[in-house]
Nucleic acid binder design. Structure first.
Lengths: 188, 188
DNA sequence: ACCTGAACACCGTTCAAGT
DNA sequence: ACCTGAACACCGTTCAAGT
C-alpha cells in the first residue's frame, strides 16, 4: 500500500499478464487490483499500450541486470549459465517473453531495443572471453557469434513455450543450447 | 464470389491480420469483407479463436508443402535454401508467424504442432543427407542437429521481426543462419 | 497533482427468427 | 444448411467534475 500508484499499476498488469495472458490485462481489472478506478491508469500512462510497454521494459532491464555472473567461474561456464538463465526466464514467464518480442509501434520497439542493449553488450563480451579461453572458435567475430547464440536461445525458448520444439514435447530447450555450444567448440 | 463462404472468411481474416495485426481482425470486419453479416462466421467456426487457428494451420501446411526443393541440388544447398525460405516467409508475413507461435489453448497448440510435423520430418531428412555429404558434423544425431538449426531459424526470424537482431538494425537474419552453417561445417 | 463516474463507440457472443 | 438483426456484457478511451 505504501507503493506509489504507478508501481502498483505495473505490478497488477504484470500479475494479470502472467496468469491469463495479454487478453486478461484489462484496465478495469488493473485499476481494481491497484485500488483505483478503471481510468486512473490514464494519469500515469498515456494508454493501455504504454502501460504494457512499461511492463516489457521493466522485464528487459531485469534481464540485463542479471547478466554479470560469478567472476570466479570460467568464461565458458558463465556464458552457458547466462544462456540457460535466459531460457529459464522465458519458460517461467512466457507471457512476458511474448509481450517483449511481440508487435509494437516502431517508437516503442526502439525503446525496448535500447533497454536490451546493456544485456546484448555484456553477452558479446562474454562470448569474446569464451573465445579467448578456447571454448568457442577464435576466428569468428564476437558480434556475429553472439548473434548466432542469441538466435538459438530465442528460438529454443519460443519453440519450447509454444510446444513446437519436438514432436513428442519432451525435448528441453537448454539441451539445444548445450548441443550448439558443444558443436561450436569443435571436434578437437 | 464463387468461393465458399468458409474460404472467403479465412482469406478476409488473413488479409486483416497481415495489414493491421491481430487486433485488426474483428468478426465484424471479417464478415463485411466476406459479404456476410458479423456473426455468420459462427456457422463455420466455433469462435473467433477457431477462425484464427484455421488461418494459422493453413499457413503451417503451406510451409510444409514448400519443403521439398530441387532434387538436382546438393543437400547442403537445399538445406540452406529451406532455412532461408522459412526466414523470408516469417519476415514477409510477420503477423502470421506471430499467430502460429503465439498463445493458444493446449488442444489448439497440439493441432498446430501436428500441422508442422511434416515440415519437421522433411527437415530432419535433409539434415541427415547434408551430414552424409560432409557439410555438417557426422557425429551428431540428425534430430538434435535439426533442433539446433530450427531454433536458430526461429530466433533469427523473431529477433529480426521485432528489431532485436542487432543494435543498429542492419543485421540480416539469413546471415545468422549462414554463419551458423559455416561454423558447424568446421575448420577443415 | 491525482482521482472518479458517466458516457461513447466498439467488440465477441448468444439467440430468436427467417429461407 | 446457412444467414440475419437485435440484444448483452465487456472493453479502451474521453470528458466534466471533484479534492
Amino acid at each position: 500500500m505504501s507503493q506509489p500508484t504507478r508501481e502498483r499499476l505495473l505490478d497488477a498488469a504484470q500479475a494479470l499478464l502472467d496468469d491469463g495472458g495479454i487478453e486478461a490485462v484489462t484496465l478495469r481489472e488493473v485499476g481494481s487490483r491497484a485500488g483505483v478506478s478503471h481510468n486512473a491508469p490514464y494519469k500515469h500512462f498515456a494508454s493501455k499500450e504504454a502501460l504494457l510497454a512499461a511492463v516489457a521494459a521493466r522485464e528487459l532491464r531485469q534481464k540485463a541486470a542479471s547478466f554479470h555472473g560469478d567472476r570466479d567461474q570460467p568464461a565458458a561456464e558463465r556464458l552457458r549459465d547466462s544462456l540457460h538463465w535466459a531460457i529459464a526466464r522465458a519458460v517461467a514467464h512466457p507471457n512476458r517473453f511474448r509481450l517483449i518480442y511481440g508487435r509494437w509501434p516502431t517508437d516503442v520497439a526502439a525503446e525496448l531495443v535500447r533497454a536490451a542493449q546493456e544485456a546484448e553488450l555484456a553477452l558479446i563480451g562474454l562470448v569474446a572471453e569464451t573465445q579467448e579461453a578456447g571454448a568457442l572458435p577464435a576466428g569468428a567475430e564476437p558480434e556475429r557469434l553472439t548473434a548466432v547464440l542469441r538466435a538459438a536461445v530465442q528460438g529454443a525458448a519460443e519453440l519450447a513455450i509454444s510446444g513446437h520444439l519436438s514432436l513428442d514435447g519432451r525435448a528441453r530447450p537448454e539441451a539445444v543450447i548445450d548441443d550448439l555450444l558443444t558443436l561450436l567448440r569443435g571436434p578437437e
